[in-house]
Design a protein around this nucleic acid. Sequence first.
RNA 1: GGCUCAGUAGCUCAGUGGUAGAGCAGGGGACUCAUAAGCCCUUGGUCGCGUGUUCAAAUCACGCCUGAGCCA
Length: 533
Amino acid sequence: MDSAGNPVKTFAVTTPLYYVNALPHIGSAYTTIAADALARFHRLLGQPVLMITGTDEHGQKIQRTAAARGLEPQAHCDEIVAGFYTLWERLNIAYDRFSRTTAPRHAAIVQEFYQRVWQSGDIYEGRQQGWYCVACEEFKEERELLADKRCPIHTNKSVEWRDEHNYFFKLSNYQEKLSALYAEQPEFIQPVTRRNEVLNFVDSGLQDFSISRINLDWGFPVPTAPEQTLYVWFDALLGYVTALLDDADDPTLENALRQWWPINIHLIGKDILRFHAVYWPAMLMSAGLPLPDRVFGHGFLTKDGQKMGKSLGNTLDPLALVNQYGADAVRFYFLKEIEFGRDGDFSETRFVNVLNADLANDLGNLLNRTLKMASRYCGGKIPKISMDAFTDHHPLAERGANLAGQVQQAYENLAFSEACEAVLSLVRASNKYLDETAPWTLFKQGQQAKTEMVLYAVLESVRLSGYLLAPIVPGLATAIYTQLGFAVDFDQRDIGQQLPFEQHSVWGTLPGDQSLGKASPIFQRIEIPAEVP
RNA sequence: GGCUCAGUAGCUCAGUGGUAGAGCAGGGGACUCAUAAGCCCUUGGUCGCGUGUUCAAAUCACGCCUGAGCCA
């Protein structure tokens, strides 16, 4: 409850729990950056936020990868997980929970959840015969296979023949309920193109799927048949629930679901859409639990227009990228230059161009040039201006007044690039305004009042821009606020209390007479080595 | 084979019935507060192709081509 007695609207967002087969790739970084930006935006709004990420560590593929490396599975997982921690730290990801499916408490949650599904009668024993791809952890239809029985997705791996007695989940029981869900909650699956795919899939008929494997140790035993091991996806999805437990909580569903359930949004790549938009809600229905609000499947990244892949040798290493250019640069490029939901491309030329143009030239230099004038012309303080000076269609005041609403809408729609564009339009207008009013000339002419008004308007526009971009480039936002004389750090979880949205999203908030910090470029231009012809 | 989404300037995209737009990149200019940044001007497009509907089509309909993807 808040002070007025209204229930506080919490916000919980998840990334996938990444499979620890290998160190994190750029796609994992992309999803996580987006989730972090969304979480940070909701923190600005002052909501209690829980951002969940983590790792999915069971399954045959992990067992084999570990064996190939001569390691115990857990040792292998621990090593890979360390790589995730490092990358998230470097990318400035402010997650609240890191959920590992090998955590002891996860076993209890999985067990309890399984029992609920068992009691609803949705689990039965059956026989499963077919070709199995260990890399996919899925059975394949014979006609899907490539020559030499190779998997169509993992083209260098052959599938294996399996003939097993497994436990199945009665997905077929949920076809109508799922269809009703999609109809009643059209925004459950986003974007629309992903939704269409799911509708198409569900309408074509749902088959029960097996939720256990034999001849596999690395996972949880099936509670009703301990000689079998739970299918990795069944336990992985439940990692979202386990993540909700507080440290002090006993690992029960009741405790896990108490505060943050249902999750507001699952952010995923489009490759795991079916698990999140079909299997997962069906499992939850079976267990009698409320469903998440939204599942958003974003697009894939290419590099220089080509699919990335180990076999092509053109992968983009996120850690190398962030080590070279910094967190804000990487975050900004992917969220501003690629429309979230659609496929997008990374090219180094474009990367450098965008960062230089938007962050160094337009935004960074705008603050720098204005700050230096303010220190020279206004004694290093923010000029004290009455808001009355900005009434009649002031180009920045007017634009600034409408900005927060637009940007908020964009963030809520996960239209990060739209949010960036809206803010950048204020930045560009500010540069133009400076040139048109030429405060350096005004000052020489002794027009102190006008000079101060102009500088205030621009400083305030930079502040607002920094505030609204903070979820995407928190480091830059902190630098902007610091140079404007505030003592804040946008990485603080309670930033929405320190700098309330209702106040700081409004143009005209900058306090007059506040002493300015030292001017220093907030984003260095990236110099491209000259091309040798 | 069925379905979905996309195809607009060199690049990334907006525009969804009424004289083709933005940012970046390219070219030129004036300025000097600034990170050789910013500002102004400018080059650049048979809006994938074809047929149809309409006084009028990038926009609507149908067909086709190309790319991405889902399903069988």
